[in-house]
């Protein structure tokens, strides 16, 4: 089903009122692992500045769907369009096509397990991709990395290694790392699920500030209170399909009994 039926339901100060161009457009995405198909043809459109929240039970395919956006899981069929360039298996001859490296320079990702590089300091974790992917010089990369760390309040920890940081701090560095590359859209794959409960807040605070800055975001999360707060489009996935989706306020007004049951169980 299409998820592009958003309408501004309530005028929360965080809701970007203007609907921009489509940044991410997934059409008919299917993906199988071996004989098991985990995505059965999913459509999703993400507009510029929009905050899409994807939730649903384990195994519903929400993380896999997110990972097809930057081709960490290349879809078996369907179209992945980022800013009108086709990166998926579908697409006609007319459409401009791009490769995965090109796509990933437009799309930032934050992982559940942080995935900071343990052999590099916080600063070099951010500096390495700036040099390797954006081909900045060493001092320019360091300046930019330091500015990114400052943005998440961790400049003082620049010379520390991931093993010396708390989980919450590591995830904040990971967010800074993805942001420093100036992506057009940020993907968050259960960014707080691996954290101690007391560390969840600091990561959500950083994500909130990212959302307020107008960044386009797609967030897979079980933090439904946070979802209610930032979600312009709320997507409930179940068994490899989008079961139901809706605009701001959807979590309190959804019709599908399966969605209601899930929300009641999580909240």
């Amino acid at each position: 089903m299409s998820a592009a039926n958003t309408s501004p339901a309530d005028e929360s100060p965080r809701a970007p009122a203007v609907r921009g161009e489509i940044v991410v457009q997934l059409t008919g995405i299917t993906k199988s692992f071996g004989a098991r198909e985990v995505l059965h043809g999913v459509d999703l459109s993400v507009h510029s500045g929009e905050h899409v929240v994807i939730f649903g039970p384990s195994g519903s395919g929400k993380s896999t769907l997110l990972r097809t956006i930057n081709l960490l899981e290349p879809p078996d069929s369907g179209s992945v369009r980022i800013l009108d360039v086709e990166y998926g298996p579908a697409g006609d001859g007319e459409q401009r096509r791009g490769g995965p490296v090109e796509l990933r320079r437009l799309v930032g990702m934050v992982f559940q397990q942080f995935n900071l590089f343990p052999h590099l300091t916080a600063l070099d974790n951010i500096g390495l991709p700036l040099r390797a992917a954006m081909h900045l010089g060493r001092s320019e990369a360091e300046e930019r990395a330091a500015a990114a760390l400052k943005r998440v309040g961790l400049l003082r920890w620049a010379a520390h290694y991931p093993a010396e940081l708390s989980g919450g701090q590591q995830q904040r560095v990971a967010i800074a790392r993805a942001l420093s590359l100036d992506p057009k859209v940020m993907l968050f794959d259960e960014p707080t699920s691996a954290l101690d409960p007391e560390l969840v807040g600091e990561v959500l605070a950083v994500m909130r500030s990212v959302a307020e800055s107008g960044m386009t975001m797609v967030v897979v999360t079980h933090e439904l209170n946070f979802a209610r707060e930032i979600g312009d489009l709320n997507v409930f996935m179940d068994e490899g399909l989008i079961a139901e989706s809706g605009p701001r306020g959807f979590l309190d007004s959804c019709a599908n009994p399966r969605t209601r049951q899930f929300i009641a169980a999580v909240l």
Binding site: R105, G108, M109, N115, P129, A133, L181
Partner: peptide, 27 residues
């Protein structure tokens, strides 16, 4: 070396060979 390390390097737009040389090999 955990799979997530390679994935993170790729997701950051690094070329697969650079991910191998600068993320996987040092670890």
């Amino acid at each position: 070396v955990p799979r997530g390390q390679r994935e993170a390097g790729l997701a950051l737009g690094m070329h697969p060979l650079r991910v191998f040389a600068q993320v996987v090999i040092p670890q």
